[in-house]
């Protein structure tokens, strides 16, 4: 979903740039609570994984493709604030070095791919983990649903930004329908990759998965009473 230069007008790009700047600043403060000596290297690895996986465009039919955005994945693995930072670093490197995503659109892309996906993906995952039984096995499916929803959500945010500052005179209904439709399909890929990645780390080291922390401590309490163990 990397927005190139020229899709949005200058005022909108400046505004998204300012919002993204503030969001990254707030994330820098928030990430302090999530990061310690062990999770800091993990954050670097998660960002590297997101960069690598974003290179893998998968076909979604009719001459279209999609790739992971990774906001939900990063939030679930290393925490939402750190997740925003991880994906932002990916987007900055992509824009400046790989000419992927416009330089004037960097704020827009951070807002869409780093902030919107983390906020929506994390919110949905958290709500599901609150509602679902407190088991480690619930974390990967919850993350997958969060990841799925985050993609059409980001597509809607783009449509909203285009309504405000799009440079071409096009039908917004057509744009919204097409963006939502295609990105719902791409969301399935996002969900699958997130499920596999979160599931893989959970299977070896559930304690490293940020979203699983509450679940693990509750499970430990159950084991200690020695009543609920089958």
């Amino acid at each position: 979903m990397h927005v190139p230069d020229g899709f949005l007008d200058a005022p909108t790009s400046i505004a998204t740039g300012a919002v993204a700047f503030v969001a990254v600043g707030v994330a820098l403060r928030g990430a302090r609570r999530e990061l310690d000596d062990k999770t800091a290297p993990l954050a670097g690895l998660v960002a590297a994984f997101v960069f690598a996986t974003q290179m893998i465009n998968f076909p979604v039919g009719a001459g279209t493709s999609g790739h992971l955005m990774g906001g939900a994945l990063a939030a679930v693995l290393v925490g939402p604030w750190t997740g925003v930072l991880c994906v932002s670093v990916v987007l900055i490197v992509q824009s400046l070095l790989f000419a992927d995503g416009g330089i004037t659109a960097l704020g827009t892309n951070i807002l869409l791919i780093a902030v919107a996906t983390v906020v929506v993906g994390w919110f949905v995952t958290r709500v599901l983990l609150k509602v679902l039984p407190k088991r480690v096995g619930m974390v990967a499916p919850a993350a997958a649903v969060g990841a799925f929803v985050s993609v059409p959500a980001a597509a809607l945010v783009f449509t909203g930004l285009y309504a405000v500052g799009g440079t071409a005179d096009i039908s917004l209904t057509t744009l919204a329908t097409a963006m939502l439709g295609w990105h719902t399909v791409i969301g399935l890929g996002e969900a699958a990759i997130t499920f596999l990645a979160v599931g893989a780390i959970l299977s070896v080291r559930p304690d490293l998965v940020y979203a699983a922390r509450g679940v693990i401590s509750e499970r430990d309490l159950v084991i200690k009473t020695k009543e609920a163990v089958a």
Binding site: L35, A40, P41, G44, A47, L85, V90
Partner: peptide, 15 residues
């Protein structure tokens, strides 16, 4: 590059 930048940033920010 992403590993070094994001990892380095996280190390600076961490508790």
């Amino acid at each position: 590059l992403v590993l070094v930048i994001a990892g380095g940033l996280a190390l600076v920010v961490r508790r």
